[in-house]
């Protein structure tokens, strides 16, 4: 690995970390989710500072090239994250659906009550819907 490439990796990983922390600071992110991205950013920094770790894992897993390990590792991590995000998304969509239906049903109930009350108060007076 050339020095320039390594420098790019280090700078990029620090920038990523900085950006994630900034978003956390602006409270655009819930802490539950921030934790994953913080650990992820940490791994990026560690890998860029100590590429020997990657070489070690590559040998341990019997792979030819460190870059293969990197691809395998990050694709797998991101795939899992995407999967869990999909689950969360489904839960969320379901909740939004339940909420919307709940509001509609409540609104209907409220209007029915109002109409009943109106009928009581002003029998004969036609109510404007």
């Amino acid at each position: 690995m050339t020095l320039v490439f390594r420098l790019i990796l280090i700078v990029a990983s620090f920038l990523t970390t900085y950006y994630i922390l900034k978003r956390i600071r602006q409270s655009k992110l819930q802490i539950e989710y921030a934790i994953f991205w913080l650990i992820f950013a940490g791994i990026l920094v560690v890998f860029s500072l100590f590429p020997e770790i990657i070489a070690l894992f590559t040998r341990m897993m019997g792979m030819q090239l460190p870059v293969n390990f990197i691809f395998l590792f990050f694709i797998f991590v991101l795939m899992l994250k995407l999967f869990f995000t999909t689950i969360e998304l489904s839960t969320l969509e379901n909740k939004v659906k339940d909420l919307t239906q709940e509001i509609a049903l409540l609104e209907k109930e409220r209007m029915e009550e109002e109409r009943q009350r109106g009928d009581h108060l002003s029998a004969g007076n036609k109510r404007v819907e």
Partner: peptide
């Protein structure tokens, strides 16, 4: 525990108060 410790030790230091 992990969430609390990470949150207290790292994340809370970066938060801006509103």
């Amino acid at each position: 525990m992990m969430r609390m410790l990470l949150s207290i030790l790292f994340i809370q230091n970066f938060r801006k108060r509103r």
